[in-house]
Design a protein around this nucleic acid. Structure first.
Length: 197
DNA sequence: GGTATGATTGACT
DNA sequence: GTCAATCATACCA
């Protein structure tokens, strides 16, 4: 299998969502051998109004309340799939949305699935990434340390950009979006930090 | 039973 | 920049 780094164990998901989201930048994700370097993530937490776990467990969010280290896959806008990693620090439900990858393996299959050749747009967004990696609701609740998933942590600590999350109306200013600094594979650029005056 | 909403994307002005 | 697609989910009657 292509990709360098240390394979994740279930203990690696026992931390807060923002911490895991930051740590996953530079990690490598494969689904049935197709994937690349994670360059963008977002953290969601039960105490956070923007989270599907806010307000308690529902049929959809049940996986977020289950064991850490599993995939939470949900349908977005009735059209797209979105992939999250379930994590846990304290008792409450939390997860990390995988928003963008730099494709490195299985380019031909991604191009066929996306009907698009530009590698910069292949996995630049949560719905695009799931289409390229063929992630569907059938993977909801599946453990991340088993097939079809393979996740490797980076050997070197990358420079990480931080900013507000995308596409939410509640808790819109919480800076829980993380990205690989300078990456050309982000779903959107990070806002330039404003200078105090 | 009905209805409003959305952790998005692609097409279009 | 604006807007529609498209439907599971959540919530209310």
């Amino acid at each position: 299998m292509k990709g360098s780094g240390t394979a994740l164990s279930s203990a690696d998901f026992m931390m807060s969502a923002p911490r895991l989201a930051r740590r996953l930048i530079g990690a490598t994700l494969f689904v049935r051998g197709v994937g690349g370097v994670i360059v963008e993530t977002e953290a969601y937490d039960q105490t956070d109004e923007a989270s599907h776990a806010f307000g308690g467990m529902t049929a959809r969010s049940a996986v977020l309340f289950g064991p850490a280290g599993h995939a939470y896959v949900y349908r977005s806008y009735g059209i797209h799939w979105c992939l999250n990693f379930v994590c846990r620090e304290t008792g409450h439900a939390a997860g990390v949305l995988i928003r963008a990858l730099e494709p490195t393996a299985g380019l031909a299959r991604m191009i066929a699935r996306r009907h698009l050749t530009d590698p910069r747009r292949l996995c630049a967004g949560p719905g695009r990434l799931c289409e390229a990696l063929a992630v569907t609701g059938a993977m909801n609740g599946k453990p991340l340390d088993e097939r079809p998933f393979r996740i490797l942590l980076p050997n070197v600590k990358p420079l990480v950009a931080v900013g507000p999350r995308i596409g939410i109306s509640k808790a819109a200013s919480t800076p829980w979006r993380f990205g690989l600094k300078g990456s050309r594979y982000l779903s959107r650029p990070f806002p330039v930090p404003s200078v105090a005056r």
